[in-house]
Structure formats: structure tokens, C-alpha cells
Write a protein that binds this DNA or RNA. Structure first.
Lengths: 335, 335
DNA sequence: TATGCTTGTCGAAACGTTTTAGTCAAAAGC
DNA sequence: GCTTTTGACTAAAACGTTTCGACAAGCATA
């Protein structure tokens, strides 16, 4: 109800509102004695700065927008946790938007961000829409792409090399003795799925195999456990079991694992299995799952650091396209 | 950079700023012809309302704060998704805070919310601190407790009956023929863990068993898969395997499952196993997991609807303490 | 024709900060 | 001892909305 303003603080401390503002924003500019007097008044009155008024006058807020494709996916959740961490450390608030992969919803999120006059936006784009983002930049809102390498040099982005990831997985399977490999994946229109396939093919070529021969693609529509199980059941039913299965995603891999075990196929004795993402549950499954680990948390952290650096040091800021390297995690399913 | 203000829109449409504001907020109050003229100007100039200015003058923002204990936990993630959904439908932005179970961090989140002058706060409290929340209410910020039943009638809350949940789980185990049951749980200082235990004991009593005899508590410090596995290993090593294991959490249950299978104990033939939360991964494990399902998504949705109702209709709003009922999901691990 | 009522628009005063220019005394420089 | 510099503070003008009282025009009623 009654919110204390800077004026009341000023009155109680016997100074002008401007001085209170200085105590808040440039404490070194005000004399020790008055500063402590003002701070005392602030405490006694329970004053908290009015963010809207502050950002209206100052011209910029202390918030960033985060738009992710699917907040239910542990991958994005970890990213979000990293973002929240850094933002909170630096006194920024995070406005969350979930696009659910829907372009329209994403656009609505961006509008909300624009209305809130966020300082910057972190986004895992749902589609390849550079236009809307440039529009935001035109409004003075910085944008950092997350899990999506920028194609232009005038923007920041943070991603993980999915081609390397695909190579790592398949090289490992080959080293473990696999001849024929199945790649269980979501739609290849998803960049991540396509890149991991490319990596897989490169690993095969490098090992002197013909990707067309050694690799079978099994595409499913949804990247969840159920689809994975169905894919496994299909492979079993058609009697064309490969030596190893590489899944574009741990959820798919968990489903495949389940499907195989149910059909009496032993993992890793009969079929090797490796997933992607290294979600927490990967190590908790009955046969613990080998996987490709991505530095999700760091992804979020670095993206936010980049963004806030761009906001706070617009002059000295150099745009960066950060590309992390994924890491192979070997567990029972390929041993 | 250059943001278009309401004045420029007014100038282009040949009306006063006040009229533009009316078009934005009470379109029915302005004549058809002028309205469309103004809307045209808005489109042409790419105007978007300045949220800070708006909430400064109007006295309230269009944002809500959401403070959760652990954004990495699928339970809270689902809740958050529900919150985001409703908020976004109603044109509200969600400011996310992750307390990590830390009281201090939670307090910092609340401060940020207060600075942003959020319309209301949704919170899964990290501790039993009513004080801070009453302080927020004193500032005119509405508060809804999430997954925590309010003890007073003057506030809204949304929760799931954990006592019923505990009963459901244990009744099911008893019906399936279990005699001795182990309850693997996190610290009993966590309300949810304690309530589920109470429910378990009630189910035993109702079945004419002595809870002291039939139920063994195995408390671990962290509620994750690793702790669960350790608990299972301990039970096996000490040679005191129960007929059934009830876990306070699916992550624990997945760990227990793994520990048992590794020791050659068959589930469900040798030991029955049931978890809690019914996270997605529960159905994807090697032996699919029976569990207690909570309406997480609805929890988030209803909490947000309650909050926004309280914000928009302060007069007619009646405080509610909503208590959802959990649901038994039977899968392989108890069949 | 005067009166009241309705409808649509305007002008101006807020809202709570930040910031700029300016005041005034005390310290420093010559 | 005079000017200049510094340091600490103040006063007032913004920032972009919303809202409220005023008012003009149109129209029905008396």
C-alpha cells in the first residue's frame, strides 16, 4: 500500500532527494557522515527503490529476458539455472518466457520483453528468424543467441559443437567394436540433430567406413522416451539389430534402452548404446548410460556474462561467438 | 536507441497523448474513427508501450515474481511451466528466482521482486518464514504459497495432500502383499517428507499393522539418485531386505532400483518399489516405476490464476487454500 | 430557446527516480 | 590576501505514461 519514496527518506535524513539517490548509486560521492545518516533512514523506513521510476529516468532497466524452447527439458533448465545465477549475482532480474517451439509464442515473449524495456535478451531461437531480433537490437536491446551459433559477426552467441559431439559418440562406438550403427534422431530439420549426424558420418569416414553402409538413420517425430522405445521395438521386430545405437538425445536413449531390454536384448553385451546431453537421469538408469556431456550450466552463465558485458561496456565490448566442446562420458552401456 | 513515445504517436494521429493512452487501455471509450487512426499511427511508428512509465504512473506493474526452491527439479519445472502459461495468457511477465533452498538467496529474490514492484509473488518457501511474506503483503504485493498449505485463512495457497499420497503408496504396497516396508526419505524436517511418512503410518494402522514394526525409515541427506542407490546398497549389505520400498521421491526410487538390480535383487519379484512425483523418467526406467502423481502443471496454473484474481479483483477475491489430491500410478515395479 | 445529458477529446498534473547545473563554503595555490 | 580549485550538497528539470477535471459539441427534453 504505502510505499516509502526517496523524498521521505531525504526528509528524515535532513538531506535532498538527490543526495539519497547518490547514496544509492554513487556512495563514494557522498560524505561518510551524511551517508550513514541516509542509510539509517533507509533502514528505519524500510525504503526500497522503485525499479520502474529508476529505469524510466535512467533509460535502462536491470532486467534481462530469457526465451527458451522448452522449459521442461533438463537441458534448457540447466541453462536457465546458469542464467539466473549470473543475473542474480549482478543484481539483474530474469524475465522468463517459454516459447514451446512456437514462433508466435516466441514473438509474444519478445514483445513483452520490449515493453519491459529489458536490458538484453537471451534466446534459443525457435526458428531461423533473424529479423525480429534485429528489430530488437534496433530498439537498443542487446541479444545473445544461446545454443545457436551466430552466422554473423556482429552478434554474440554461445553454442556447443554438435558435429564434434556426433563424432565423439560414433568414434567411441567404433573403438568399442561396432560395425553397423543406428542413429535414432528427431527431425533432421532441427539443427542439433542434423549436426550430430554430420559428425557421426565424419567419424565413420575418418575410420575408413562408408557412412552410407555403416550408418542407418531412424528418424522419429518427438524426442522423448516413448519415441525411443518405439524405435527400438521396430528395430527388433524387423530383425535388423545394429551393433550399436547412437541417440540424438538421452530421452530417446532411455526409451531405446527400455525397448531393447524388454525384447531380451542385452546392453552392452548385444548392443552398445550411447545418448546425448548427459542429463542427470542418464547415470541413474538400470544400465547407466554413456552420453555426450554438454556444459549446459556454463552455457547459461557465459551467455549471460556476455550479455551483461555488452550492456555495461558497450564501447569496449567485442562480439564473440563462443563454441564449447562436448565431452564423452563412458558408462556401462558401452563397456 | 530511439524509442517512440506516446507523444509522437499522438502527433502523427493528430490527437492528444491522453487519447492514445485511452486507445491503449480503454479502447471502448474512444470513437471508432479516431481509434483506427491512432492504431494506424502505432503500427506505422512501431510504438511499444514503455512498461516502466506505465507502471510508475498506474501504480502497478504487469509482472509476477516466481521463487522456487530448485529449478533443476522436474517437479518445480512443471510448476513453473504452468505459471508461465497462465501469466503469458493474461499478458503478465514472469520474473524467475531460484532460491536453491537458501534462505538468504530467497530473501534477495524477494527484494528484487519488491524493487520491480511486481503485482504478486508465487513462492515455494525455502523455510517457515511467514514474516518476510507479510512484509511483502504490507507493501501491497499479493502472495500465493505454492506446494505449501497456508496455515492462516487470510492468504491463498496451493498444495497437494502429501499425507494422502503416503497412504496411497503404502496401501498399494500392502495390497500387493508387502509385510515389511522401508521408507527411503530425505530429512524429515522437510514438510513433504514428514507428511508422506505420516500418511504411510496411517495406512499401516488402518490395515491393522503396527507402524513401529512394519515400517523402517531410511533417511538420507540428499534426495537424488545417488543417495537412493547408497540406501539400497546398505539395505542389501545388512541383509535386512524389506518386502517393499517406498521412496519420498522418484529420483531416490531410481537410485534404489539401480542398487537393487545391481545386487541381483529382482523388482518386483523380490522387492516391490514405488516412488513419488511421477516424473517423466519414472516410466522410462528399465523396470518402469510405480509412483504417486501430483498435478504439478495444474498446481502452477491454479496458483497463478488465484494470484491474478486477487490482483485484479481485490474486493471480490476470496482467499482459498486449495489442496489437490495425488494419484496412484501403477507400473511394473509393483506388479 | 433554454436546459440538461452524453459522448469524445484535451490539457495538465502527477508517479519516483536520476541527472545536470549550480550554490556555497572550505582548502589550496600563487 | 587574493583567486582558484575542490568537495558536498541542493534545486529543478526531465523520463513516458495515466488519470482527472474541464469543455465542446451534439442531441433529446422541456
Amino acid at each position: 500500500m504505502s510505499s516509502v519514496s526517496i523524498k521521505e527518506v531525504a526528509a528524515r535524513a535532513g538531506v535532498s532527494p538527490g543526495t539519497v539517490s547518490n547514496v544509492l548509486n554513487r556512495p563514494e560521492k557522498v560524505a561518510e557522515s551524511t551517508r550513514s545518516r541516509v542509510e539509517k533512514a533507509i533502514r528505519e523506513l524500510g525504503f526500497v527503490r522503485h525499479g520502474s521510476a529508476s529505469s524510466l529516468r535512467a533509460g535502462h532497466s536491470r532486467t534481462v529476458g530469457l526465451s527458451v524452447i522448452d522449459i521442461g527439458n533438463p537441458f534448457f533448465t540447466d541453462v536457465a539455472a546458469g542464467v539466473e545465477e549470473v543475473a542474480s549475482e549482478r543484481g539483474y532480474a530474469v524475465i522468463l518466457g517459454n516459447s514451446s517451439g512456437d514462433r508466435l509464442k516466441e514473438e509474444r515473449n519478445l514483445l513483452v520483453f520490449a515493453e519491459q524495456r529489458v536490458r538484453g535478451v537471451l534466446i534459443t531461437p525457435a526458428g531461423g528468424d533473424l529479423a525480429k531480433l534485429d528489430q530488437l537490437r534496433g530498439r537498443g536491446i542487446n541479444v545473445v543467441l544461446v545454443d545457436h551459433p551466430a552466422e554473423r559477426a556482429d552478434q554474440c552467441s554461445v553454442a556447443v559443437n554438435d558435429i564434434t559431439g556426433g563424432s565423439l559418440a560414433v568414434s567411441h562406438l567404433l573403438a568399442a567394436g561396432a560395425g553397423r550403427i543406428a542413429y535414432v534422431t528427431g527431425p533432421l530439420t532441427i539443427r542439433q540433430c542434423a549436426d550430430r549426424l554430420t559428425g557421426a558420418e565424419r567419424a565413420l569416414s575418418a575410420a575408413g567406413r562408408d557412412p552410407g553402409q555403416a550408418l542407418e538413420e531412424v528418424a522419429v517425430s518427438a524426442m522423448n522416451a516413448r519415441s525411443g522405445q518405439q524405435a527400438a521395438e521396430k528395430l527388433v521386430a524387423e530383425g535388423r539389430l545394429p551393433d550399436a545405437v547412437f541417440c540424438a538425445n538421452d530421452l530417446l536413449a532411455l526409451g531405446v534402452l527400455r525397448g531393447l531390454l524388454h525384447a531380451g536384448v542385452r546392453v552392452p553385451q548385444d548392443v552398445l548404446l550411447i545418448g546425448y546431453d548427459d542429463i542427470d537421469f542418464a547415470s541413474a538408469s538400470a544400465v547407466s548410460l554413456s552420453s555426450i556431456r554438454q556444459p549446459t550450466h556454463r552455457l547459461g552463465r557465459v551467455a549471460t556474462e556476455l550479455l551483461l558485458d555488452e550492456c555495461d561496456n558497450p564501447e569496449s565490448h567485442a562480439h564473440q561467438q563462443v563454441m564449447f566442446q562436448p565431452e564423452l562420458v563412458v558408462r556401462e552401456s558401452t563397456r
